[in-house]
Design a protein around this nucleic acid. Structure first.
Lengths: 144, 144
DNA sequence: TAAGATTGAGCCCTCAATCTTT
DNA sequence: AAAGATTGAGGGCTCAATCTTA
């Protein structure tokens, strides 16, 4: 219906991206839910926490780094109660990431994907609040 | 926490992809919600319907093409009640897609993205139920 | 009776209002 | 009082059970 304004190639690329964006979260959630009773978001929160200086971070900081609202994070915190976990879930999660993404692509494609995603992030998240902490779009050697 | 099993380059690519997957749906929803009071999923359903022979499709067919469960689609259908719409929302939506994705990339990157996404979809959706209808991952000239 | 479709309970997220702390 | 954080109502999605139709 809206195909008139994109070329065939552009439309195909777009629809495939939409499909990936729809399906990937489910694939991540399914594995973690099955093996660790964690949603991908919960896992991500724990992973970020585990990298923090004293396993401690302001709710505000976690929220922005994970692109979540404060209430969402607060609810998640209440449900999890005891944080800990996460570490044992890592190997399975990484294997899943390998299987669905990294190992499916050639090394060149991984680099291409990295560059493409970095470009998109500059528009989706100009402030860089979400992604910048984990993977800077530029190349400065952050001191932390 | 799980960085030991991915190279730095792979990890960076992965984290950027995760960020895109987290942020893109919100960007699509925000524009459509604002300009057409439609979620991206609802828009997508209407777009698929509008391309169908007689504006008609089995719920089962729509559900699989949109990667939704039948109950989800059923609930959406109840809320929308009168289908129609969608056509007027298309230009704004396409402009948004251009701004956030297509125009941000070089033509080469659009092709790379297309190939990468096609590869990922073979693992995320082996049956091709979701994406195959809209954009075949391979290159066979499907008869339909 | 098997495929197609809807319903309702439960869970999670969003938004606005409300504490709480510095 | 302003920043940090929690709470509760409302709405969408999932899952299982149910209804409907060929």
């Amino acid at each position: 219906v809206d195909t008139k304004w994109l070329t065939d190639d552009e439309l195909r690329a777009w629809m495939r991206l939409v499909a990936v964006v729809e399906l990937l979260p489910g694939a991540l959630d399914a594995q973690l839910r099955r093996d660790a009773e964690l949603s991908h978001y919960e896992y991500y929160v724990l992973a970020i926490l585990s990298e923090a200086p004293h396993r401690t971070l302001r709710m505000t900081a976690i929220a922005s780094r994970t692109n979540a609202t404060l209430p969402r994070l607060s609810h998640v915190a209440r449900r999890l109660e005891d944080w800990t976990l996460c570490q044992p879930a890592a190997p399975g999660h990484v294997a899943n990431v390998r299987e669905h993404v990294i190992d499916a692509l050639t090394p060149e494609q991984v680099e291409q994907l990295s560059a493409i995603a970095a470009t998109l992030l500059r528009r989706l998240d100009p402030e860089g609040t979400f992604a910048l902490h984990a993977a800077t779009a530029g190349q400065e050697p952050t001191g932390s």
